[in-house]
């Protein structure tokens, strides 16, 4: 029988662990955004070497399952002499993975800016740097915001995989409770609800920001 009681009792514990889920996923998105910006710039640059590096990076981290990336960093970093806490290795891996997706999103954003707008900016005498910071970046952010918000929710979900390499967060704690109480259904459903609420909140905030942009456009 489904026991509401078990679900309710485990809720405070699971909520506590969900803080880690939020911390890990949001910090990996923040780091990933920096990596993604750099890789996007490298990908759009004139240098074939930089473009090659960016292409390789994006291809690898999008081409290998995140779980395999996590296992690689968990087992292999110590082999090459890098000994960091598993949580740090896990967040780093998440960041590298999401960075590849963010690089692609930003690339699409920059390439989606109509050429006429850049030409217009050049014709009124804006410098290359001004065009980048005043025209291109703000427009690319507006274009790509929905995708970036979506990527953030994807990372919240993907962060559940770091439970596999032993990092304590929502999924890991749910597993621990499930095996000790023998009530897996209640526990995992509760964990699922928490993930759902986190993502709903992120989507909601994203839509607020988007609405702000739209109001700006209408004004």
């Amino acid at each position: 029988m489904f026991s509401i009681d078990v679900a309710l009792k485990s809720l405070p514990l699971l909520l506590g662990a969900s803080v880690w889920t939020i911390v890990y996923s949001l910090s990996s998105v923040a780091i990933g955004f920096c990596i993604g910006t750099l890789m996007c710039a490298a990908g759009l640059s004139q240098s074939p070497v930089l473009r090659g590096i960016a292409a390789f990076y994006v291809s690898f981290f999008r081409g290998v399952p995140l779980l395999v990336q996590l296992l690689l960093s968990y087992y292999c970093l110590p082999l090459i002499g890098i000994n960091v806490p598993s949580s740090v290795a896990a967040v780093g891996t998440l960041a590298l993975c999401t960075g590849a997706y963010i690089a692609e999103i930003l690339r699409g954003g920059f390439l989606g800016i109509p050429a006429g707008l850049i030409e217009a900016a050049r014709m009124v005498g804006l410098s290359r740097a001004q065009i980048l910071t005043r025209i291109e970046v703000p427009m690319a952010v507006r274009f790509t915001l929905p995708s970036l918000v979506n990527e953030t929710t994807m990372m919240v979900k993907a962060s559940s995989l770091i439970s596999v390499v032993g990092v304590l967060e929502l999924t890991r704690l749910a597993q621990n409770i499930a095996t000790s109480t023998f009530q897996p259904l209640e526990i995992y459903l509760t964990a699922g609800v928490i993930y759902f609420v986190i993502n709903a909140a992120i989507t909601f905030v994203g839509s607020l920001v988007e609405r702000g942009f739209r109001a700006e456009k209408a004004a």
């Binding site: 559940s160 995989l161 259904l185 995992y188 699922g192 993930y195």
Partner: peptide, 23 residues
């Protein structure tokens, strides 16, 4: 659709595999 898109695949697998017997 909202539930499947809003929750981790791993949790979904746990619910189906470990929670399935309860259904």
């Amino acid at each position: 659709v909202a539930v499947m898109r809003g929750t981790p695949f791993l949790i979904q697998l746990f619910v189906i595999y470990y929670g399935g017997p309860f259904f």
